[in-house]
Design a protein around this nucleic acid. Structure first.
Length: 436
RNA sequence: GGAAACGUGGCGGAGUGGUCUAACGCACUUGUCUUGAAAACAAGAGUGCCGCAAGGCACCGUGAGUUCGAAUCUCACCGUUUCCGCCA
């Protein structure tokens, strides 16, 4: 959500930003509605002030006759207030609906474009592996090795589910363990920041296992509630499943005020992510690229507003550090206006090389929301001079298990169909060198 | 699942219908004193919205209701704690 006063003062910028994001909004109608809201609000408050004043008079010494008269008068005013309050409520309801539909404004360095075709590669790293044979896709290799079973999962749970088995499971937990070691080590983080010339306070991440259910109301405040079709909903319990740990990490501090000295706060949340994938019918149906359920380690940072862009760069640097450690070729992509998320002001994705598919596929995302989410969630910071403002939020993937496993399987495949295990993961897998 | 108690400002904690709509303590800010600090003393300070301002309105878990007037009474919901039951 943007602040209404900001919208009123910058309606051209807001309108242009929405247009770039391909979101239809009607600023003029919102401002007309806001005028009406302020007018009726003033009327209601003036009437309440009168009631408050006279009620105190009634409580003070008064002769009984006057008391009765005043009470009668206030009864009438009360009716008036009730009618005006109902009017105000109707206006505010409509006003809120419109406010929630206004997207965050893209940053100035966000490329403009209609859809993912407008995304721009910022930089790339790594040599694509050369094979003396035709590289296979992950699901062929995984099936043959007995470490990915989508057929049984299909019978038991339906499409877009899988059984991960054996060494692949050990690899998942190795990946998570490796990443948690990076994220909780101040020296490592400091080094990553320095190597990328990023000036942030490189304090350690607090590991979190968050709830995977969230109240729909909170999801709405996170600006992550899209349409009902896109989520797993549990109406009996008024709950829904999260699509990312971000959803229950970012909302941890709603209605709270941080002290300036406590920021930044960094969390590393591990959870299963649930995605209904409505509208993706027929897309990426093989293997584990696009699943209804996958595990993910996610970073979430609450920071001072002036630091949030650097924080995002820092998160991307961490993502790159992880991929470099794994020896996976990747490219960093600036996501364009038409493809970026509704609450994002700046979004950077990382696409990792997948030899079986012979293309880069999205494995990571880093979203910078500015104060957009914080305003909806009412998460604020008290500056050292006492002033209170909204914090800025950033979230970013560390490892999304399915896709990272795919990248490893395909990049490290051998002629005999075995998978060489990246060196950094071997210590978590009993020293093994190959999955075969 | 059963029973009970309770949800007040950063924290603790008064306040059971009114006449300053939140006492008091801790923590906090500033000042005095001090070489500096601590202590002591003094002053200040909740959050949001409207307003140029003066000022006004709202907020005591959330939402409805009763009343001229609600932190206080009624109802529903949410949450926390304790005991019992079940259980990874």
């Amino acid at each position: 959500m943007l602040a209404i006063n900001f919208i009123r003062d910058n309606k051209d910028i807001v309108q242009a930003g929405a247009k770039k994001k391909r979101v239809e909004i009607d600023i003029e109608m919102l401002i007309t509605l806001d005028d009406e809201r302020l007018k009726v609000l003033k009327e209601v408050e003036d009437l309440r002030a009168e009631v408050n004043r006279v009620s105190n008079d009634i409580a003070r010494d008064q002769d009984p006759a006057l008391k009765v008269q005043l009470i009668e008068e206030m009864s009438a005013v009360k009716e008036d207030i009730k009618a005006k309050e109902e009017k105000l409520k109707a206006i505010v309801d409509e006003w809120q609906k419109m406010m929630l539909k206004i997207p965050n404004i893209p940053s100035v360095d966000t490329p403009e474009g209609p859809d993912e075709s407008g995304n721009q590669v910022v930089r790339s790293w790594g040599e694509k592996p050369q094979f003396s044979f035709t590289p296979k896709e992950h699901y062929e290799l995984g099936k043959a090795l007995g470490i990915i079973d989508t057929e049984t999962a299909g019978e038991v749970s339906g499409s877009r589910f899988a059984y991960l088995k054996g060494d692949l499971v050990l690899m998942q937990f190795g990946l998570i363990q490796m990443c948690l070691e990076i994220l909780t080590n101040n020296d490592t983080l400091k080094k990553i920041a320095e190597e990328s010339s990023i000036s942030v306070v490189p304090s350690a991440f607090i590991p979190v296992i968050p709830p995977v259910f969230i109240r729909p109301l909170v999801q709405l405040k996170m600006a992550r509630y899209m349409t009902p079709e896109e989520h797993y909903l549990f109406p009996n319990d008024d709950l829904m499943l999260i699509g990312s740990a971000e959803h229950t990490l970012g909302s941890m501090h709603m209605n709270k005020i941080f002290e300036e000295r406590d920021l930044p706060i960094r969390y590393a949340g591990y959870s299963t992510a649930f995605r209904r994938e409505a509208g993706a019918a027929g897309k990426d149906t093989n293997g584990i690229l696009r699943q209804h359920q996958f595990d993910k380690l996610e970073m979430e940072v609450f920071s001072l507003p002036e630091n949030s862009v650097q924080e995002q760069n820092f998160l991307v640097a961490i993502q790159e550090h992880v991929l470099k450690s794994l020896g996976l070729p990747y490219q960093v992509v600036a996501v364009c206006t038409g493809d970026m998320g509704f609450p994002d002001s700046r979004q950077l994705d990382i696409e990792t090389w997948m030899p079986g598919q012979n293309k880069y596929r999205e494995t990571h995302s880093a979203d910078s929301m500015g104060g957009f989410q914080a305003r909806r969630l009412n998460t604020r910071v008290r500056r050292s001079d006492g002033k209170i403002e909204h914090v800025h939020t950033n979230d970013a993937t560390v490892v999304a298990i399915g896709r990272t496993l795919i990248a490893i399987i395909e990049n490290y495949q051998q002629a005999d169909g075995s998978i060489k295990i990246p060196e950094v993961l071997r210590k978590y897998m009993g020293g093994k060198e190959y999955i075969k």
